[in-house]
Design a protein around this nucleic acid. Structure first.
Length: 634
RNA sequence: CGGGACGUGGCGCAGCCUGGUAGCGCAUCUGCUUUGGGAGCAGAGGGCCGCCGGUUCGAAUCCGGCCGUCCCGACCA
């Protein structure tokens, strides 16, 4: 891996901006030319410092020999900023829906993210392994997920008709490994991780790397002899994750989350705060509580005092009024006085869920309360079958299915409901008298008006991108797959597991969502493809080109990752590209400045520009790089 | 999988309604000029109009099927 002169020539492609990678047929001839060109242009230096700088190619990277096809126009199929900018900056190219090629500079970003992941995982005591992406079905059948996981699991057969899948996650493989290798509590705790290519046949891939089908994930798995030790392993990972995202310069939040199909007792998601995020999260303004809205707990409302009217519910005609808003305004009552009745089909049978008209049902809470594999809102047809009326007129009075009520219903002393009859509602319906739910529970979505479930403080809502997720798995997999060890008393104990994921490409995409402006990406330096862009304003001007070359070489010698725009392009194009690709520091050499013995340093983020004497240029740029790196301290 | 839309040089689009020579901008190549925020002039190359079938003297255009892609909903790093 050391002597890579020739490989570099090959890998860097050639040429001008906007080069469309398709012309692979041109490669061979080009290589030969380059081999020669490199002699006098590349000028090998023997003492290439490995210090500080990134990995991969060492030495000054020249635009004319690098494949970084930038585009002025946005491809029409890119919706979110990160996707658009990744395409425009030449970081990725699409191969199929949700499947991408990482271009040279895009790969550099991924490698930087990976490097931080490795450093922090190692630091936290985890060991790196690499599992296969092709996994035999037996393991998945053993855990029960072969049937439970659904179509996202891409399955296929080999020539001998044996079933396999492309691993979307690796609990089964790692548990199989550990049960074979671990005998004693003395070998614990154990934490193994990998950075590997995953495949999930997503129902709807979208947003570029944000939700691809093939993607790189860092996944770690911890094994402990008991719950207390497992909790400690979980805590360590939680801390490592905080360090990781701080080092990437990201504004993030760790929130309580639903465990979904991975399972386990509890989990936290690491959310990068961004308006374009797919998840909504709440956080307390006064304490540390934060949660995904899917998970956020709602305090039970106080039961209303008994002001219930005597007698029975009254049926009234409400022609064409189906929605809460329509009915409430028609009856001239607050939506909160309506008892909303939603019918669900679930793996445990049909269920009616009641919630105050001022609230929304949280399907995940319903699913978890029932312990169901799936729940879904009943289709119009099914609603008719159950209630005898079109949707919009369902009510709990006289319903023949299981009825679950949210705590908010308890607060309604006397409310209005559907009459299970077209164009009719019931007034003066009293919970407990006119119908009796099979149970009360927290089944609704939080709102801005809800107090923090921990301290009673106010809740704030924001949107986030889930870049990491840590789970306390408990014994879900170890029990199903009999992963055990002997404790000090010689007794067999089921291993207690945890699992911890981070999406590599997704993290890079999230960084862009959070760090960009109208001109392009503004990379945090810790994950930028390059640290400094050197731009000679006019390559045909000998002194300018020579000064640029010197600065580039000097920075490289100091271990800085330099991108040298040696194209014979107009300055405007180079500036636009430098901004677009988001290199944190820009060094500009212009004719007048160079003639006067000066160069310029510009901060991509602030736009702040300083005029510096040529002999000090490299040093100043280095200082700026160091300063930015320091800002990404853990 | 349901709902919506789109597929025309590398990229962004027009043309389709009303069938008859495939067009524009950007990019690419050559030359000259230009050189501090996506230059100007002159010239050049490049398109199975997604695929298959049908209608027609004739299909990018009309009809049918398929494939692909994107957007909106339920899953997840």
């Amino acid at each position: 891996m050391r002597r890579q002169r020739s490989r570099r020539g090959k890998g860097s492609g050639r040429g001008g901006r906007g080069r469309q990678g398709r012309g692979a047929d041109l490669r061979e001839g080009r290589d030969r030319e380059q081999g020669e060109g490199e002699g006098h242009r590349g000028r090998d230096r023997p003492d290439r410092g490995t210090s500080g700088a990134g990995k991969g190619e060492k030495g000054v990277i020249r635009y004319t020999r690098y494949l970084m096809p930038t585009t002025k126009e946005t491809p029409s199929d890119a919706e979110v900023v990160s996707h658009r900018l990744m395409l425009r900056a030449g970081l990725i190219r699409k191969v199929a829906s949700g499947i991408y090629t990482y271009m040279p500079s895009g790969l550099r970003v991924l490698r930087k993210v990976e490097r931080i992941l490795r450093e922090e995982m190692d630091r936290a005591g985890a060991m790196e392994v690499l599992m296969p992406s092709v996994v035999p079905s037996e393991l998945w059948k053993e855990s029960g997920r072969w049937d439970a996981y659904g179509k996202e699991l891409l399955r296929f057969k080999d020539r001998a008709e044996r079933e396999f899948c492309l691993g979307p996650t690796h609990e089964e493989v790692i548990t199989d490994l550990v049960r074979r290798e671990i005998r004693s509590y003395r070998q614990l705790p154990l934490n193994l991780y990998q950075i590997q290519d995953k495949f999930r046949d997503e129902i709807r891939p979208r947003f570029g790397l944000m939700r691809g089908r093939e993607f790189f994930m860092k996944d770690a798995y911890s094994f402990d002899a008991d719950e207390a030790a497992a909790a400690e392993s979980y805590r360590k990972m939680y801390e490592a994750y905080r360090r990781i995202f701080r080092r990437m310069g990201l504004d993030f939040r760790a929130v309580e989350a639903d465990t979904g199909s991975i399972g386990g007792s509890s989990s936290h998601e690491f959310m990068v705060i961004a308006d374009s995020g797919e998840d909504a999260i709440v956080s307390c303004a006064s304490c540390a509580y934060g949660a995904n809205v899917e998970k956020a707990e709602c305090m039970p409302s106080e039961p209303a005092g008994f002001a219930a009217k005597e007698g029975a519910p009254r049926k009234i005609s409400t022609p064409g009024k189906r929605t809460i808003e329509e009915v409430a305004s028609f009856l001239e009552i607050e939506p909160g006085m309506l008892i909303k009745t939603l019918l669900f089909e679930t793996s445990c049978g049909d269920v009616a869920v009641l919630v105050s008209g001022a609230h929304e049902v949280n399907e995940i809470k319903v699913k978890n309360f029932l312990g169901a594999d799936w729940v879904r809102l009943a289709a119009e047809e099914r609603v008719r079958e159950i209630t005898g009326a079109p949707s919009g007129y369902a009510g709990p009075v006289g319903l023949a299915v299981r009825i679950l009520a949210d705590h908010s219903v308890r607060a309604i002393a006397s409310g209005a409901t559907g009459a299970n009859e077209k164009d009719a509602h019931l007034l003066d319906v009293v919970p407990g008298r006119d119908f009796s739910p099979d149970g009360y529970a927290d089944l609704r979505m939080v709102t801005e008006r809800d107090p923090c479930p921990r301290c009673g403080g106010g809740l704030r809502f924001s949107r986030g991108i889930e870049v990491g997720h840590v789970f306390r798995l408990g014994t879900k997999y170890s029990e199903a797959m009999r992963a055990v060890c002997l404790d000090p008393d010689g007794k067999e104990r089921t291993l207690v597991m945890g699992c911890y994921g981070i999406g590599v490409g997704r993290t890079a995409a999230a960084a862009i969502e959070q760090n960009h402006d109208e001109d392009g990406i503004v990379w945090p330096i810790s994950i930028a493809p390059f640290e400094v862009a050197v731009i000679p304003v006019n390559m045909k001007h000998a002194e300018v080109a020579a000064a640029a070359e010197r600065v580039a070489q000097a920075l490289d010698a100091k271990g800085v990752e330099v991108f040298y725009d040696d194209r014979e392009e107009r300055p405007g194009i180079k500036f636009k590209d430098a901004d677009l690709t988001g290199v944190p520091v820009r060094v500009t050499l212009g004719e007048k400045n160079v003639a006067a013995g000066f160069g310029e340093i510009r901060d991509r983020k602030t736009g702040e520009t300083r005029r510096i004497e040529l002999p000090l240029l490299a040093e100043e740029a280095l200082a700026m790089v160091e300063k930015k790196k320091a800002e990404c301290a853990p």
